[in-house]
């Protein structure tokens, strides 16, 4: 190999390394990507409580629009690393279940709601998830990093943590102006068992990497 060959080889390798680093490596290993959303949640003026209100009476369910609201864990301890941080909840409602729902859902989970997006600039926690409607109930799909909240700040981690301590059922979380309480929780492989009782909101998150095992929990609105 002569000098030209070495020069070309080094240049190609250097360029490849730089491009790979910038466009693949950094976005992938970056543990925290700042959440930046437009906060334009419409205000709900009055709730008519003639019949039992459902989730859509409290949360804006405008299709394909991102919303962000306050969140607070009411009756459970937070992991040590989480303490002192404010918590927000960012979600997108993608409408009724249809044939291409799974594609839309996974695309959002891997991009707009990628698991690295868990903190805002001030270090506050932003739970993220996608909501869809199916069989007259709502499903929220959210990430889990399997660290049970000791390393990252994901809603799935927190639920996994509580479930591991047998504390998930009875957990109350206030999202905006509604309090949800976990009524049931199941650790299932959903290709083998995929039948769940109704709840005001069903939250699903992974329990194993590259597996069909899910933690599925049913949450009901706390009605006074």
């Amino acid at each position: 190999m002569n000098r030209t060959h070495y020069l070309v080889l080094t240049a190609v390798l250097f360029l490849s390394t730089a491009l790979f680093t910038i466009f693949v490596f950094i976005p992938t290993v970056n543990p925290y990507e700042v959440v930046n959303v437009q906060l334009q949640t419409p205000m709900r003026e009055t709730i008519e409580i003639e019949s039992l209100p459902s989730l859509k009476d409290f949360w804006s369910m405008e299709e394909n629009t991102t919303k962000i609201i306050d969140a607070q864990i009411l009756n459970r301890e937070l992991p040590t690393k989480w303490q002192g941080k404010k918590i927000f909840f960012k979600y997108t409602y993608i409408g009724e279940y249809s044939e291409n729902t799974q594609t839309i859902l996974n695309d959002l989970l891997l991009n707009e709601y990628k698991w690295q997006k868990q903190l805002d600039e001030n270090g506050n926690i932003v739970f993220g998830g996608i909501i869809l409607a199916k069989d007259k109930t709502y499903q929220l799909h959210t990430h889990n990093s399997y660290s049970k909240g000791n390393r990252y700040f994901l809603l799935g981690d927190l639920l996994d943590n509580y479930n591991s301590n047998n504390e998930l059922i009875g957990t109350q979380i206030r999202f905006g102006n509604v309090t949800l309480e976990a009524k049931w929780a199941k650790d299932v492989k959903i290709l083998e068992e995929n039948s769940f009782p109704f709840a005001d909101l069903i939250i699903s998150t992974c329990l194993e990497r590259n597996s069909y095992r899910r933690l599925v929990s049913g949450w009901d609105i706390e009605r006074e």
Binding site: T28, K136, H141, N144, S195, F196, S204, S211
Partner: peptide, 20 residues
């Protein structure tokens, strides 16, 4: 809410943090 009205199935979504 009253009686359990029925059952539903959960969509299989990629909610696991990816392995790098």
């Amino acid at each position: 809410q009253g009686d359990v009205l029925g059952t539903t199935s959960v969509v299989l979504a990629k909610t696991g943090a990816s392995s790098d």
